[in-house]
Design a binder for these strands. Structure first.
Lengths: 326, 326
DNA sequence: CTGAAAGCGCTTACAG
DNA sequence: CTGAAAGCGCTTACAG
């Protein structure tokens, strides 16, 4: 490891001057700046972290999401990063892959970087409390707050589930199937399903037990034949848009048209959904604003000791073309 | 800011003992460990970085990509993160938004975190050299190496452009339009276009000047009417899959069917393309492997002083249903 | 098991 | 414009 002292020696100046030359703060002659920079380059000097709480590395925050390749989380991650850039914080990432064990490891790794704070989207905020040995200020994103994690930014997934189901029932649908990702890995899917159940029951209809699909990234091999035979649904709600796209593909492989034979709707409002033909009917969640809100809340807590809050953001039904009246 | 000294004071021990209690290294009585940990918790103590090059934060690397929400980059970022987790390195992210000015800022920010190394996907590796005041070990991802950045992991974009064009010509297409993202922001698009030009010319066909589309995230407002009138293309090559999806939507809005009236093909092989109906014809780039390869190369350079290398990975034509013979 | 003290690599008044 | 020196918060032999 090369030290500044060695650089100074090679440049023929003192430690102090070398420090000033490299950091461009104190007054140093141009000649000396050049000498020092050259010496530093030749020696491959990389500054170590000075003590004293001064300067050193930029503060960082840690972000845990299930998967970077899911557009929903990519979108919030992107806006978190933009917000943190302005605030002068670095952003470290970790992925759980929807696996509680990996989730705990991932958070532990983030902690090794001594982050100013954490933004977490966890599998289950209650059980994730096991992590808690003195976490820095933490904001949940997309998970409901708990007593241990009182700061959170969420959408009303329960209400969104009700709204979508209500719309389908209004359009005359009665046999509505709910296809979901793994509930254990997503309390969002759970809340959406709850909204569906409630609304079905409220209309005197019997909710169908959710069909749970293990997460596989992109659902290009989904097989719905058994469920179609068993329930003959006229509409299918998918617990997220990625899954909805997979459902549409699966229906087409069964020779069914969307929305001709079966209506399909999802949640999230991923951008790609607008490019499909017909465009996907979905409940749009403002992922980017949610990410930015979580980032701002975290900064407020970490820098101004602001109290933990729960922000709930509004969603919006986006009528595409994959749903029709019966 | 709370210091270890204050914690020690409150716990009723010396600085040294407090340090040992918190780090669980030297021998400390259980009672004292408890006292110190409690004092630390009460004071909200967060360790500062000790000098001396010892311990401190986990080493980190920095990753710069144009945009996290682009599935291509999300995919490589994800695999970089997975590779680095195993190696015990944190991953910091930065986005350029395809803007050279923001790119420079973003790299400067990353440097503030004193990363062990950098993985960069830049707009233009030649002009980006302006960044170079003593960068740590750096690997380009998706950019061709230069003398200043000799380490790189790339696909053969030029060859991919040739291959796709060749296929369309084989299928009888003659008027082939190339629709591209902003060339200034992507040398990948440039190389793909070059492959197209060469192949067209090689077959005695006149390449059409590329239609450049400014980047807008998701292309749901693309207007191709002028180009369609001017060139009556029977096939359109898009410089990437996201754009290809936009092109297909635009054609449909013009009342044209794909591939009935116009064939469309893209590059990248994003997962969503497989879910479309018909599935997108594209040249698949192994983004995840490329990310992992870049990560491994960087670690090798940073930890073992391995020499810079250029790895070129193989692509693969994925025949979807958006192209047909004429 | 505990503490006094040296030392880590760096920054920054202070003096020239 | 430059240097000697104090000091940053922490770790770690060394001595008890």
């Amino acid at each position: 490891m090369t030290t500044l002292q060695q650089v100074a020696l090679r440049a023929g100046c003192s430690l102090a001057t070398a420090s000033r030359a490299l950091n461009r703060n104190g007054a140093v002659s141009d000649l000396m700046v050049r000498k020092v920079r050259r010496a530093a380059a030749e020696l491959g000097y990389r500054p170590a972290v000075p003590a004293g709480g001064k300067l050193g590395r930029r503060p960082v925050i840690g972000v845990l999401i299930p998967s970077i390749t899911n557009p929903v989380f990519a979108s919030s991650l992107s806006s978190i990063q933009n917000r943190m850039l302005v605030a002068g914080h670095g952003v470290l990432i970790a992925q759980s892959d929807y696996d509680p064990a990996r989730e705990a490891d991932a958070v532990a790794s983030l902690l090794n970087d001594q982050p100013t704070g954490l933004i977490l989207t966890v599998c289950n905020p209650a059980s994730s409390a096991a992590l808690l040995p003195s976490l820095p200020p933490t904001v949940l994103l997309n998970n409901m707050p708990t007593s241990l994690f009182p700061a959170a930014v969420t959408a009303d997934n329960h209400g969104a589930g009700r709204e979508l189901t209500e719309m389908l029932i209004d359009l005359g649908h009665r046999r509505i199937l709910f296809v979901s990702g793994n509930f254990a890995a997503s309390d969002r899917a759970q809340h959406r399903y709850e909204g569906y159940r409630e609304t079905m029951a409220g209309h005197g209809l019997s909710p169908i037990r959710a069909m749970e699909i293990p997460f596989v990234g992109v659902y290009d091999q989904l097989d719905l034949s058994a469920a179609l035979t068993a329930f003959s649904p006229t509409a299918i709600i998918a617990s997220n848009d990625l899954l909805a796209l997979g459902v549409i593909g699966a229906l087409r492989r069964e020779g069914l048209s969307v929305p001709g034979d079966v209506s399909v709707a999802g949640f999230d409002g991923i951008a790609i959904g607008r490019l499909m033909d017909p465009p996907l009917t979905t409940i749009e969640m403002p992922d980017a604003s949610m990410g930015a809100a979580a980032a701002s809340l975290l900064l407020d807590m970490a820098e101004n000791a602001a109290p933990a809050r729960h922000l709930s953001v509004a969603h919006m039904l986006r009528r595409g073309g994959t749903v029709r009246a019966i």
